[in-house]
Design a protein around this nucleic acid. Structure first.
Length: 124
RNA sequence: AGAGUGGGCCGGGUGGCCGCUGGUGUGGGUGUUUUCACCCCACUGGAGGAAAGUCCGGGCUCCAUUAAGCAAGACGCCGGGUAACGCCCGGCGGGGGUAACCCCAGGGACAGUGCCACAGAAAGCAAACCGCCGGACAGCAGGCUUCCGGUAAGGGUGAAAGGGUGCGGUAAGAGCGCACCGCGUUUCUCCGGUAACGGAGACGGCAUGGUAAACCCCGUCUGGAGCAAGACCAAAUAGGGAAACGUUUCAGGGCUGCUCGCCCAGUUUCCGGGUAGGUCGCAUGAGGUGUCUGGUAACAGGCAUCCCAGAUGAAUGGUCACCAAUCGGCCUCUUUUGGCUGAGAACAGAACCCGGCUUACAGGCCCACUCUUUUU
RNA sequence: CGGGGUGUAGCGCAGUCUGGUAGCGCAUCGGUUUUGGGAACCGAGGGCCGGAGGUUCGAAUCCUCUCACCCCGA
């Protein structure tokens, strides 16, 4: 599993949490962050070599179009900032109902604030 | 020109950069090897008219099953279309609109049961409160009171009071008789129509109130579950079955106190069920487009041509620039117009697949028709 | 994918099966009582019964469609 450090910010399948067990492991006791629009669960897994993301957007956030929009904003944020995170980072973002009524730029700012403690300072 | 009715169509576009996902590749890399997994590269596909709600009908899969019946539910004018339908098309009847046109669960109320509040004398085999008319007895001045009988024209109640109008008739009245209108068809005949039904005539002579989206009767239809169906592969842990070991050394319990033997337990190997997880099902189909033929139409058939999403913690996006319809604000102007600036869509996201129905929807385009006004 | 429930006054609920008067508690307003307030007592206001259509003389109630919310099962 080779790390591709090209200029382009990719988001391949191995950078996502895919199994239900992964979600249970990350959303268990651990570090958390809160914003008006999201909840963030974080866990560091030394065995992996690149940061991984999972997300949960429930039906209370909105209809299918709204939920897809929120998930795309989260994925896009993670894709563009992936190289700045710790390689052993595993995180799960859970949307709160308010996120469905919020503009994309505001959601991106909210995510930036949440992930600030986990980004590598030397990449700034 | 204005107002309106019906039907059909579209659902922003172009380009740059960064991404996601299916397919293809004697492509490249990593995992010890691989047809496997992951990553990269190139080429090429990648949401809708409703993908929605899940209200019906099918295909498909598994289970059950002789047929039929019972129960339950749905449907219900006639004819046709369809794989099927509660859908669609064409008629009929009823209702609404000046009209184009729109709406209707539209079988049966002499098979039976129930209900019809309040008001009213009376609400269901009709009956008689106030009245109207006749007769009788008694009282008193007329006429009234009481009793008996005949009535349903008039009054009043109600959604509904057992045909309507007129003439005759009568003590007063009444389909009691007649004319016209209406009603009936489970009374008959004729004509048109496949039929629903329509038209005409005879007959009946007001009998037959409403409600079946009250129970019900009649006819038709329906076996159950649903792709998390179903088929296959199969980790860890626990448990099940089978075989072998137990010679030597330490080795548990039981059959007996001991030996042998047997059983349980133990160790090893194998087997099957099966969870997490994975693969298939999984997109060539009642398919799309064009054209011809039949049919008023729904639709059917022939020929040609095309392959057009397949995710699974769930892809089809983000950002920048320009253009476009439209809308808001400001300035100029009598208005038209012109200029600047801002917003720049709406409803909404495939999840096994089709046929419908219903609901949501910014803005725009096309066709046909109706009414009104003006001009010729 | 399948199944069920709720919507009635500002809030919480009856009434729907079996059609005809919309009611209860808290809250609100006015009055009595008190030096004043609370409590208590007396009285009043407030609803097109989630929406649309239909059946019926008449619909919160029956039927159809629809909207929103909630809860189960796989």
């Amino acid at each position: 599993m080779k790390r591709n450090n090209k200029e382009g910010a990719l988001f391949p399948k191995c950078a996502r949490l895919l199994a239900s067990a992964d979600y249970r492991r990350v959303t268990g006791p651990g570090r958390k962050g809160v914003s008006p629009h999201f909840l963030l669960f974080v866990r560091f897994e030394p065995a992996i070599h690149e940061p991984r993301l999972g997300m949960t957007v429930s039906r209370k956030v909105g209809n299918a179009v709204v939920r897809n929009r929120v998930k795309r904003v989260i994925r896009e944020f993670f894709r563009l900032n992936r190289v700045r995170f710790d390689p052993s980072l595993e995180c799960v973002v859970i949307s709160r109902p308010r996120a469905g009524r919020t503009a994309n730029t505001v959601l991106t700012q909210s995510l930036t604030q949440l992930f600030l403690p986990y980004g590598s300072p030397k990449s700034e």
